[in-house]
Design a protein around this nucleic acid. Structure first.
Lengths: 191, 191
DNA sequence: CCGAATGATTGATTTCGGTTAAGAAATCAC
DNA sequence: GTGATTTCTTAACCGAAATCAATCATTCGG
């Protein structure tokens, strides 16, 4: 399982045999059944998680309502940056949508790795930059457009989503109610 | 002018005399009159800009409409991360709301500085992390709440804004029309 | 100081998502 | 396979923001 994560890392910066081994040494694997939790609000996030297979949903709870922030599928990386960096309790809930196989490593081990093999610093920086850019793209999508346009763009960008995620989670991700998404779909079908 | 930027950097990681001098050597200063442009859509962003005094507005143009993304005041840093990192043309427009005094340095010079004085790598990383966290906070504000609540939170978070920025720009920042902001204010005044 | 431009408010109307409630369709568990 | 649960759709009504248009207030340039 860790092989595929290593492949990903190698596309960012190439690793020597030694570096790869040092990295593998800090990883652990873990399985999650559908509906089990990777993270609950109030936890402290100390791990980075690589999704080998399956899918997860990240949401915040605001006024008793779940606001879906992101979906994760195979080959994605997840960590709560805020909690991971500051050590504060997280506001995020992460739940398995499907059974998952995961690869994890801890912040502590990662920092030792940074010191032993500086190439991982580079990987860490580039990952952070990518996280920023992707958050920024999500921002643009969700704040500049009407729900209908957001839905259209989402279909184009991630058609896979609709095969694997219940529609009411997608509605929540788009910032609307399931009934409204249903209406939007109807409206678009008739036009 | 560069003094105050140095002060800011020193709060992130302390710099030696030599490092400070090396940094000062790559900075240039610049003035901008009200309504002049720091950046136009299509430009390539090669600079980081520190606002010594004055204010700027960052907006995107979507379907011919200006969507205000952020305001910058004295002591803020601005760069278009996407364009700065990838060298692609920017989607951002940045215009002076008031006369500005700015300190700038280029990406090229910054990268040389990284190599000569690794402490700047650290500063760069932490700045990127902060940018991520602040974008994330802005996200939460703008996507989870109704316009009225967003307005209330904005007043509490940035009361200064309303002294220095026309109301229709604030409306745009909140994702609504000026007329609607006017009505929200009226509604809140009577209740 | 005055006219012009800019910015803010108000009103009438339309559009669209939220709410509530009901029922249909799909999926799951036994 | 059947009943139960979960998910999706539909409908009626409501409220809030958009739109269109006019007016009022403020600021700016000469």
């Amino acid at each position: 399982m860790t092989d595929r994560l290593l492949q990903q890392l190698n596309t960012i910066a190439s690793l020597t045999e030694t570096e790869e081994q040092a990295f593998v040494a800090i990883t652990t694997t873990r399985r999650l059944r559908k509906k089990e939790w990777l993270m609950r609000q109030g936890d402290i996030c100390r791990m980075v998680t690589f999704i080998y297979s399956g899918s997860l949903r990240l949401f915040h709870t605001v006024d008793g309502e779940e606001k879906t922030i992101q979906f994760f599928f195979e080959n994605a990386l997840y960590t709560d940056y805020l909690s991971f960096l500051t050590g504060q309790p997280t506001l995020e809930n992460v739940q398995a949508l499907e059974d998952c196989a995961l690869v994890q490593f801890s912040r502590t081990d990662l920092e030792q790795l940074y010191q032993q093999h500086p190439v991982f610093e580079r990987i860490g920086r580039i990952s952070a930059e990518r996280a920023f850019l992707s958050l920024s793209a999500r921002n643009t999508l969700l704040t500049n457009q009407s729900p209908e346009v957001r839905y259209q763009q989402l279909i184009r960008a991630r058609p896979d989503l609709f095969q694997r995620v219940p529609q009411y989670h997608i509605a929540s991700f788009l910032g609307i109610k399931p009934e409204s998404l249903s209406r939007i779909r109807k409206r678009m079908a008739t036009r």
